[in-house]
Amino acid sequence: MKKDRQIIEVRGLARQFGGVRAVAGIDFEVCEGEVFGFLGPNGAGKTTTINILTGLARADKGEVRIAGIDCAANPKAAQRLMGIVPDESNLWPELNGFENLSFCGALYGMRGREREKRADELLDMFGLGDAAKRKFGGYSKGMKRKLTIAAAIIHRPQVLFLDEPTTGIDVASARQIRLLLKDLNDSGTTIFLTTHYIEEAERLCERVAFIVGGKIVRVDTIENLVRDVQKQRVIQLTLSRSGNTAAGSDSCGLEELPGLLRVAFPGIEFESITGSALRALSMKALPLAPLIRFLEEREMDVTEAKIIRPSLEEVFVNITGVALEQMRKEKEQGKAKGGKA
């Protein structure tokens, strides 16, 4: 049964806000038991799509079916099958962890004993047993996120929608959440995930769809997507400005380097990764010694050189043309300000 039946079917979905086309006629389907990633740069239409799928927004055109139920005609029947984790932890701050879970169970019609038992079970599963009687408002970001996920699965949904589940939380909590999601999927829950942590999608998802400017540009398995870029050779160089500036040296800023390097080394692609790192990408062997010499002549010391195994991140950058680091910063700044990026 698993992975034979389509549990989410989206056909020709479109939505416009004023003159802005947020979602422009997208089609995709997700199979039962699958972990499906929905990736794209900020403002690509991910949250609008997830909101339409879950019933919080309306489509101008198109059709969404969850387990065969037409979401426009019967949104409440479809919502009974869904668990939803929004991009912000939005439980009730004045209720404690146990009360929040029990209340969310009640919203799905679970009776008292049944939902209390399930709340206890989830608090233990998410490692929040000790915080059960503490108010949600006093939880750390990681704890809030875990309880929000627990609240979304209290009624044992068939499909779990997660919008940026690990953004803005500590590494240990994010890792724990990923393990919990893997377990949930192993127990049969279909997962629809949007994230801007590409390595998270690579680790969790079987298939991903890339959405750019409201359009789906590619849907494929991780294996197929990565296969193309793995033929590429990638070296990452960490640079620091040289202390001994020689007279007459051809010094330049890091931001100018990719352009200069492309001219000096035709056929090799260069891109800045962070403020001090640079990546060289080529389908042929990379001339490392001339490259280092070229940088040293421009007062840049190469403090580290490492071979990068091309991953989904390269696929994302190639497809969307967006620098991931920049996208992450924008998203996290947006969250810190309490706004939606």
């Binding site: 019933g55 919080l56 029947a77 919502q79 009974r80 939005n90 439980l91 009730w92 919203l107 609240a151």
Partner: peptide, 9 residues
């Protein structure tokens, strides 16, 4: 948190 109520069946 009102969104959560709107998303309930």
């Amino acid at each position: 948190s009102y969104e959560r109520l709107l998303l309930a069946p």
